[in-house]
Design a protein around this nucleic acid. Sequence first.
DNA 1: TAAATGACTAATG
DNA 2: TCATTAGCCATTT
Length: 118
Amino acid sequence: MKPTAPVAPEPRNFFQDVHEVVRLIPAGRVSTYGTIAHYLGARHGARTVGYAMMAAHTADQYVPAHRVVNRLGHLTGRMHFATPTAMQEALEAEGVRVVEDRVADFDKLLWDPAVELA
DNA sequence: TAAATGACTAATG
DNA sequence: TCATTAGCCATTT
């Protein structure tokens, strides 16, 4: 054992920021990886945001990752949930209609932190 | 230390 | 218009 290296199971600042923004997403609304990435100053960091969602499972607080979809409104990350339908059910429970793994009226439900938090 | 992977997006042919 | 390539950031091997 090497007690000299207290491993940190928690993500970096970037992930913390992503988790914080995702928690700000109101119920019944959805956001995208690119939007969050852009809000954090990393336009092309969408992939990192997606990775942060996967790490959201390790976050101290609950992160409504089901409210985050790709730019097309497609539930790309549903397979990472407890069950393949957990993401869709969570969205529908909040009033978001999901049709064929896609968010209905995605453009209207899109929550942009750069605008909502302006 | 370096290379590969990934819940993405934008640009180019 | 569709398909392919490149870029970004962090984690994992």
